[in-house]
Write a protein that binds this DNA or RNA. Sequence first.
RNA 1: GGAGACGUAGCCUAAUUGGCUAAGGCGUCGGUCUUGAAAACCGAUGGGGUUACACCCCGUGUGGGUUCGAGUCCCACCGUCUCCGCCA
Length: 424
Amino acid sequence: MVDLKFIRENPEIVKEALKKRNTEDDLIDEILNLDEQRRAFLKEVENLRAERNKNSNLVARLKAEKRFAEADSLIEQGKEISEKIKNLESELKQIEEKLNNKLLYVPNIPDDTVPYGKDENDNVEIRRWGTPRTFDFEPKAHWDLGPELDLLDFDRGAKLSGSRFTVLKGDIALLELALINFMVDLHTKEHGYRFIMPPHLVTKETITATGQLPKFEEDLYKTTVDELYLISTAEVPLGGMHRNEVLELKNLPLKYVSYTPCYRREAGSYGKDVRGMIRQHQFDKVELFWYTTPEESNEALETLTAHAEKVLQLLELPYRVIILCSGDLGFAAAKTFDIEVWLPSYNNYKEISSCSTTKDFQARRGNVRYKTKENKLEFVHTLNGSGLAVGRTLVAIMENYQTADGKIKIPEKLIPYMGKKYIG
RNA sequence: GGAGACGUAGCCUAAUUGGCUAAGGCGUCGGUCUUGAAAACCGAUGGGGUUACACCCCGUGUGGGUUCGAGUCCCACCGUCUCCGCCA
């Protein structure tokens, strides 16, 4: 959530930010208008409340002095005041609800260092690592290789659950588990994260705090009976854990790593990545999440991104890092680095991690604060990043590590987790 | 699922049968003192309205209600604990 006060005082900056995101509409003017109405009503209500308070205090004093007749006449006056307050309050409440709802639809303001751009074509490459392998045979895409080796079963995935579901079988399922363990080990033992296993079903309040609701309801799976939402990323429970809490400065930064499946309806991605298991309704992801101070959050984004990159380096998978331009930035993010891994089947780099700072955007929505050295309560900054998307890592290994005789070599670092050097 | 107890500020704990300003402690920050620290003492320590101050409003799990007036009374919901039931 963007600070209402900030919008009020800097409407042009906020409008400009929205324009850079291609989300220009009259949202800001509506908010300013509602805010003005709200404050006008508030003033009136507060004056009446002050009058009521004065009145009832006087009643108490008169009664104590046994001046009952005078008290009775004040009680009559009090009734009238209360009636007025009641009416105004209900109008005020309606305005406030409208205002708050609008505020939840305002995306985060891009950081100054975010390049201006319209869409993904304007993202800027920052660095590359590794060199894509040159094959002395025709490499197969994972959607061919997987079924041929009876490791990926797209047909049965579709039979069980429809399109964009896949069954992982045998060694490839074990490789998925190995990857999860490998990533969690790295982040907990080398990078100092605390491992968290959160619920996968969360309340509306929780998923609103991280920014998936209310704007992206159509992308979420929702249970009907209890109105719980399936998480679309572990960012949701990790970012919701400290909702309405005050964190201790000495405990910051809090660094959490989590493994969860992620459930996404992928509404609006029809025709995108339809082959194979690049884009699924359910996929595993190891997620990194930070709670930190405003002073340290810029550097934290670099560190978090480096932690995600480390996974690819250890697996010796070529990748590049790009910074998202303003037009491609996610709703809650102020700045995002995407890590893209080399995929032979795409003959290109493909997103495997997205590392973002939301600054105080999520903390404001979730009311997560900390006490500064000066003893002030302030919103923390939150960051999140995939470390990594496990399914896509699996695909990258299958494609990049395939052999001429149609097998898959296991990356050096994963051999201890797999107990073998080849599968297939 | 059933029964009971409970929910107060960053934390812990008070508040006659509804009545003036939610008291006190701890922690934290600032100050006095000190070579430095501790102790002691003083002050500060939720949100909002007002350009800012003065001032005012709100804030006792959430939302309603009763009342001139609600931490206190009533209703619903959420959560925690205890016991019972069911269950991998």
